[in-house]
Design a protein around this nucleic acid. Structure first.
Ligand SMILES: [Mn+2]
Ligand SMILES: [Mn+2]
Ligand SMILES: [Mn+2]
Ligand SMILES: [Mn+2]
Lengths: 219, 219
DNA sequence: AATAAAGTTTAGACAAATCTAAATATTTTG
DNA sequence: CAAAATATTTAGATTTGTCTAAACTTTATT
């Protein structure tokens, strides 16, 4: 299957949007890829032709089994490159998404395998997201909850929901990274903000916007 | 300067073909890039518009100073990735050119700098070619001669002229790699073949085709 | 110097990926 | 359920990169 970079980006977005929902809408894909709905419709026809998606006019899009397999390969490459950039080249977690967005399109199974070996076959990327293995098997990390919904008082940061530089830089500034242990001091119902404390630091409050994007596991 | 991958590939080819010669011909570029002369003419107009080449209809192409600068950046990225693949991921020298052909197009100065640091700022790639530094300065591999023209009897392999898998696999089979020390036993005028000997191995003969692509320095 | 050969450019076409504006279908709402 | 709102598709352009075939220019040959 010979795919263009554009086709790969569509496949990846559809996979991402498909989590949970039945079918994915034209508008949702357009928003995700920062393009126009008309362009999505055009691409939908091409991907249907290549049997990578199921698509009926006006009735949404889903990946076929083949489409999912390809999506997982792209995600694997993306996340392995992110690991490489952080672990080997000392990039910080907010810098790597954009670069991985390009590196992920170098399609070579041998390269992917060797890169993974070189990195010690990591199972999560610098944002806490799971890395599919060579067979496309990916651990669902569903013992994770967003911080704004977590019940326990003592928690550990396991992943972030949002890769935006803005959020990640905010977390850097607050000293929050993967593995950071958090104690919930207080939850304010009024605006759903949370007062938290990190070891050796004064307590501070974070907004709902932030806390819903921090995925935690109870300690 | 925002360049497409196609534009970068043209710039790089023109740079390569420009060595020595005055101007580069449409046909030469077409052959190098495995495309058609008409396509080269089309691209020449675009690159002239962007002031990366000097070009007058029917009178050949040369890179401008800006064009050369960009070419050297691409070559730097290409050769650094080749080093990475060989030194860190254990690829062999005949496998890396194709992959580097794609990786070279990820344009990030920070990535390039960090990759270079990670590799110990190498000055030559796995084929013996010099790597331009961050300022675009590249050591001319002076004092290197093709084996078919070298005068001395005792020589060291310093680079290869041809990146083709066919040649590199042939050299692998014969135990010839960068740094290999060669003793010239005999030169046969009839077909310009050379009988050579490598330490701990029986002597063997290589054709002119091969020997002109092995660059050596006298020991 | 005239002609042949080789090299280069133009004209016109096509595929991929995108867009805007208009048309059409689906969904929501009073 | 009909009208309004929202979502989606189509029609028609545009940009980039490519091609073939024909025209043109330069160069080599007799
Ligand atoms: Mn991408
Ligand atoms: Mn990630
Ligand atoms: Mn390339
Ligand atoms: Mn090389």
């Amino acid at each position: 299957m010979n795919l263009t970079i554009a086709e790969e980006n569509y496949i990846k977005s559809i996979f991402k949007l498909q989590e949970g929902t039945e079918t994915v809408s034209t508008n949702a894909i357009a928003y995700e890829l920062d393009t126009k709905p008309a362009s999505v419709t055009d691409m939908a026809k091409k991907l249907k032709e290549k049997k990578l998606i199921d698509y009926e006019k006006y009735h949404g899009i889903t990946l076929t089994a083949e489409g999912k397999k390809i999506a997982l390969q792209i995600i694997r490459r993306h996340r392995l490159w992110e690991c490489f950039l952080v672990d080997k080249l000392s990039f910080s977690w907010e810098e790597v998404h954009e670069l991985a967005e390009e590196l992920e399109h170098v399609r070579s199974e041998k390269l992917t395998t060797r890169l993974s070996d070189f990195l010690g076959n990591p199972t999560t990327d610098p944002h806490g997201d799971p890395i599919p293995d060579a067979q496309g098997k990916m651990n669902k990390i569903r013992s994770l909850q967003p911080l704004d919904k977590a019940a326990a008082k003592r928690l550990e940061v396991a992943a972030v929901n949002d890769q935006s530089t803005a959020l990640l830089e905010f977390l850097n500034a607050k000293g929050i990274r993967l593995g950071t242990q958090i104690e919930v001091i207080e939850r304010y119902e009024f605006d759903n903000s949370v007062e938290i404390k990190i070891k050796n630091q004064p307590a501070f409050t974070i907004s709902e916007q932030v806390s819903k994007n921090i995925l935690v596991r109870p300690l």
